[in-house]
């Protein structure tokens, strides 16, 4: 239980790891927009090329990157199948009963596949794989801080995230302990129907809740003793600075976005209808 890792952060010394976390949040939003802008085969080819460059830059094993795609596999297949049969076009390739496949359908389905893959891989490379959860929390706090004007509790939200990150491994360890304790008393968590199984979770959840509340209480006291009074008047040990490389990354991605728009316009081949 010593190496409970949250999220998918993979430590490595890559240019992507070195980028400022705030910039990476913006970059991944931009990249996602780019995946949705692409409309024809040239633009999608550019997207795939950009994704491959990111993969190479990140120095993350391919095996791990494929793991990021696995959870969306179902969505990918579903979207592709729907696009394959729903798209109506001019070149009918195959027809059986009410199912028709047009050449446009094949294009649309494969474009959707590429779009989802580049979206998932791109955003996980730019963010979750190369940014620690703490950096991410700080980045979100910093990016959302203008919303304080509207009295949004940005600092409190970030503090909650920090504490959650700190306590999730502890609580999962504790859950395992409680389950073992209940097993030692003869509880079998793997028998019975769904109702029975949910019922057998009660003796785990109750002690877990009780201990969480005790922990929360103790932590709150400890935080007060360390002079915590909310975000007001608080300073930070590390103030992140934007470097030249962050600017370069932004410019490159903006150029890439412009390129996608131009390729949509002047590139050749089938243009996606939606």
């Amino acid at each position: 239980m010593k190496t409970v890792s949250l999220g998918q952060y993979y430590p490595a010394a890559s240019p992507l790891h070195r980028l400022d976390a705030r910039m990476k949040v913006c970059l991944s939003i931009l990249f996602i927009v780019c995946t949705f802008l692409a409309k024809n085969i040239c633009a999608f080819a550019a997207l795939v090329a950009a994704m491959l460059i990111l993969v190479a830059l990140s120095r993350i094993p391919l095996r791990l990157i494929l793991r990021a795609v696995r959870p969306v596999l179902f969505i990918m297949v579903f979207t592709a199948v729907v696009n394959l049969f729903v798209t109506k076009g001019e070149n009918l390739l195959f027809s059986w009963w009410k199912l028709q496949i047009f050449r446009e359908g094949i294009y649309n389905a494969s474009f959707m596949l590429v779009r989802i893959i580049t979206l998932v891989v791109g955003s996980s490379l730019l963010l979750t794989y190369t940014t620690t959860p703490i950096q991410l929390t700080d980045a979100i706090e910093s990016l959302l801080s203008p919303l304080r004007v509207f009295r949004l509790p940005v600092h409190e939200f970030a503090m909650m995230m920090t504490i959650a990150l700190r306590f999730i491994p502890l609580l999962s360890e504790e859950t395992a302990k409680i389950m073992n304790a209940q097993r030692a008393r003869g509880v079998d968590f793997s028998v019975g129907g769904p109702v029975r199984r949910v019922q057998s979770l009660v003796p785990i959840l109750i002690p877990l809740f009780v201990s969480s509340f005790r922990r929360a209480d103790e932590l709150a006291t400890a935080m007060e003793c360390r002079c915590y009074r909310g975000g007001k008047g608080r300073t930070k040990m590390t103030i992140p600075h934007l470097h030249a490389r962050d600017g370069v990354a932004l410019v490159l991605l903006l150029l890439f976005g412009t390129g996608i728009v131009l390729l949509n316009r002047y590139g050749y081949g089938y243009t996606m209808t939606r």
């Binding site: 703490i134 920090t162 504490i163 990150l165 700190r166 922990r215 103790e218 400890a222 935080m223 360390r226």
Partner: peptide, 10 residues
Amino acid sequence: NPDNQLVATI
């Protein structure tokens, strides 16, 4: 309890 007085992960 050493676990219930540390706030940050690092």
